[in-house]
Simulated assay, not measured.
Amino acid sequence: MSSELIQALHEIERERGIPKSALIDAIKTALNTAYKKNFGTAQNVSVQFNEETGEVKVFSQKTIVENVKDYRLEISLEEARELYPNCKLGDMVYVEATPSNFGRIAAQTAKQVVIQKLREAERSIIYEEFLEREGEIVTGIIERIENKTLFIGLGRTEGIMLPPDQMPTEKYELGQRVKAYIYEVKNSPKGPNIFVSRTHPYFLRRLFELEVPEIYDGIVEIKSIAREAGFRSKIAVYSLDDKVDAVGSCVGPKGLRVQNVVNELNGEKIDIIKYSSDPAEYIANALSPARVISVSVNKAEKWARVIVPDNQLSLAIGKEGQNVRLAAKLTSFKIDIKSESQIDKESEGNDGED
């Protein structure tokens, strides 16, 4: 240990922003632990670290007695007065007890502490950086695949993509470049955990923000998103400017904007719906591409009955109920769809009962 260590601590404080005092406190604590580990704990010892020179000494606390029975805990009056001329029997004094090889142990310990503190500082910086980026899209390279979980290189750290965050229609391979949405950043003893997703509804939102200037500028708003990742999504959009067509802005010239999003999602179908504050109109729009005859709404119970032409029933419901399921999720209404002929039969049945 030497003044070189002190100089190194000064440089770390200046370049990395880690307070020198915090490093010294950590070194002191580690030195005491290292001494007890290597030389036992029977003695009441204290390891002192000189903050100016970097010198390390070990002092043992001893009681002044007339007849020494345990040299580790006691000292004679004659020996004590060589160090403390005014001491007397019963006093407690500190006597240097630095082992001959403790300097090497101290140097190794200090080095380990500094390395650990640098790692902690680096982790803290990365955590703060990505915490600010929560809600953004990042691009990285798949570096590892463990138990179906993807670990994606993001520069100085990695993103974690759990199986539910992976598109069921995609196959992932090592070295593959992927875009994903940061939905959560957690701190842990081993460093920050950055969770990313390609299935999150807000991944779709951010992709449209990147493609549609009107959304990025706040002229067009995305009011709601319903998504079955990899298969089909619906987004409801609204324009704050009467001169701007919300749906047309998202579709883009010759469908280019929405097609770019579809390409990023490997063919996921996207229905862009015009939002309306009128629930009946909103629900009718949400069932697109099916044509709707009428919508009856119970606002209190968030329930709606929709009537469609007979030839539109299967389209309104969708394959395995997907279209109506997404429409219900988009609008937050329970939707009951009936065809015209079903309604006529129900009416005939009711007339017969009368």
Rank of each mutant, 00 (worst) to 15 (best):
T149I: 15
S276P: 11
C250M: 00
I115A: 12
F151G: 10
A316V: 00
E11L: 10
E51P: 07
D278Y: 02
I160L: 14
D165L: 04
I115Q: 11
D242W: 05
K302L: 15
I337V: 15
V295A: 04
F39G: 00
A121P: 03
S233T: 05
T331H: 06
R104D: 00
N32S: 06
A97Q: 01
L150P: 03
K254G: 00
W303T: 11
L9K: 11
I64V: 13
R206G: 09
I270H: 01
P189N: 05
V308Y: 06
I272S: 04
L204F: 10
L313R: 10
T169H: 07
M1A: 15
L256S: 10
A107D: 02
I27S: 05
T41A: 15
S60V: 00
E221N: 03
P289I: 09
V185K: 02
S124V: 05
I160E: 09
K36F: 00
S294Q: 12
G255I: 08
Q108Y: 12
V138E: 09
A107N: 04
E11K: 11
F49R: 04
A180N: 09
F151L: 15
G175P: 11
A121H: 07
N263E: 14
I12L: 14
R104I: 02
K319Q: 14
K302H: 14
Q259H: 08
T149L: 11
E52S: 11
K190F: 11
P19C: 09
I126A: 02
K171F: 06
I137L: 15
K234C: 04
L118G: 10
D351I: 13
A327E: 09
Y94W: 13
I64R: 04
E120R: 15
L31P: 04
D91T: 08
R144C: 04
S60P: 02
C250H: 01
S249N: 00
G352D: 14
R16E: 13
I24N: 02
E66H: 11
G267E: 08
T98E: 02
V297G: 12
G90M: 13
K179I: 10
P99G: 00
D351R: 15
A327Y: 11
K269T: 13
I64W: 08
Q7E: 13
E55N: 03
N44S: 03
P213C: 08
E74G: 01
G352Q: 13
N263I: 14
P289S: 10
I152Q: 07
V65R: 10
I270P: 00
T169I: 13
V114C: 07
G135K: 08
Y183L: 12
E173N: 13
C250S: 00
G140C: 09
V178G: 09
G159R: 12
I12K: 08
N44P: 01
A107W: 03
I152A: 06
V251I: 15
R206S: 14
G191R: 03
E214V: 11
Q312Y: 12
I12R: 11
E143W: 10
V306K: 03
